[in-house]
Structures are given as structure tokens and as C-alpha cells.
Amino acid sequence: MEFGPHLLLASLEGATTAAVLALTAMGLSIVFGVMRVVNVAHGEFYMIGAVLAWFIATSVGAHPALGFVAALLIAPLLVGFLAAGVDRLILRHINYDPERTIVATIGTLYILQQTTLMTFGPDARPVEPPFNSRIALPWFEWGENGFEFYFPWGLSTTSYKLFVIAAAVVILITLWLAITRTKAGLVMRATQQDSDMAQAFGIPVKTVYSVVFGLGAGLAAIGAVLVVPIQQAYYLMGHDPLLLSFIVVIIGGLGSLPGTIIAAILIGMADGIISVFFTPTLAKIFATLVVAMVLVFRPKGLLGKSTS
């Protein structure tokens, strides 16, 4: 395949990675932005989302689409409730102290991971996509008769991957509208900016924290449900999303939601393109280099604000 079509193919792979990464990283960013909690267990909520998606899809049986829709609706909710429970049982009791929350979420990571290993087992398990038709993509070239378009061999994607991108865009826009246009969003933003004063105006800050922690984990679970028909569910799958989410959140600026989206697109696209042209390892090296450069030259991240 020539370079142009190959690049388009790689970009589409990158866009799928970016879409899932944007959802996952957004969850981490919201939790840090509102609660100032570095959630090291975020990747495990992603993993549990994927495992639950497998469980729900196989339990529902019937048509794959039915199982997938059930998984997309139920798994994020269950993961959200699980995370809210972790907040109430653990984080609240250590008073959201920044250092202790890191240790507590590391502990949570291992509890969730090992519990999944003991119950779900070590095998990777697939979830059938709800639809997965192959779509041939056209390529344009300047030929003897002006612009011509043709379908190069191998230049194709699947309808499901396009759905993942579209679904992520819709969910992120909905989230953005909810944060900026609704009363719940106002409560979240007020809590983010000054939790003491939010409390002085009757906002139950601890409840807001539980909801936000659940929302963050739920977003990771949505990402996982979307990705599990492309990859597979297994108990160690939370590592890469956690690492990439941290990279995205740091590059975008801690707690900055627009910054998170921009960084997810940058890192996701780079990951897809470099993985296709070179190797996935080189893609991770690139992402780590970018985060190192950002930390050196712009420690606040692309759109971050200094925290005081």
C-alpha cells in the first residue's frame, strides 16, 4: 500500500484509540479536577467495565447487539456504583488526603485486579461486536484525467470502529453540556473551585465527591465496553489505559477537560499511527517522551492552570 492510504488507515486506527482514550482520561481528569485525588485504580475500573461487558453480553445471549447494548448501559452503572462505594468506604475515611489517597487507590488496584483473577480467571475473553461490516475506503489521486478516486487494496475499516469514534464524540459532547449547562454541572464546578465555600452554600461536598468518583470510573467503563469487541477482556488490561490516561491528563493540564481532549487526540493519534508504521512499543516511548517534554517546558500542561 502506498504511503497516503497507509497513513489514512493508521489515522483511523489512531482515531479509535484516541476516542477510547479520551473517555478514559476524561474520567481521570474529572476526578482529579474536582477531588484532587490521583486515582491509581482508574485502569482497574476500566478493566472491570470490560469484564462486566463480557459477563453481561454472554449472559444476555440472543443477538450480539442486544448483549452489547445491555453491557453499554449496565456495566458503566455498576462500575460507577462500585467506585462510589470505594469513595465512601476508603477515600472519605482518609479525608481525601493527597498522599494517602495514592496509597489507598494502589491498594484498591490490587484488590480489584486479584479479585477479578480469582473470579473471572486469567483468560482473555472476546465480546462479539454488535455489527462489524467492513467498509472499503476511497483514496484520491491526481492522475492523467485530473482527480481520480479508487479503492486501494487493504484500505478499509469496520463499521464498529467508526461507531466507537462517533459514540465517544457524542458521549463527550453530552458530558460537556452536562457540566456547563446543568445544575449538577454547576454544583460540580463550584465544588471543584472551592469545596469549603461550596459547602457554605449547602452543597453536600462529600456526596458530590462520591458521584464524581463514580462518574470518572463510569467513563472509564464506557471506554472499556466500547473497546472490548476490538480487544478482549482480561484481568491485566487496565495497565495501558491507566498509563496513557495519566500521560494525557498531564499533557492536557491537570483537571483541564479541554486539555484532556486535545491531549487524548494527540496521544491517541500518535499511538495509532506509530503503531501501524513502526511498533506499539515505539508509540509508548513517543508518548512518554512527549510527557517528559511537557513536564520540562510546560509543567502546567497544554491548558492547565497553576494550582494554588
Binding site: L186, R189, A190, Q193, D194, D196, M197, A198, A200
Partner: peptide, 10 residues
């Protein structure tokens, strides 16, 4: 409060 402590980004 002292220093107003508004929700500055709102």
C-alpha cells in the same frame, strides 16, 4: 468570607 472567595471561574 475574608477575601470574598468567589467561584472565580464562574
Amino acid at each position: 468570607p475574608q477575601g470574598r472567595r468567589l467561584f472565580s471561574e464562574l
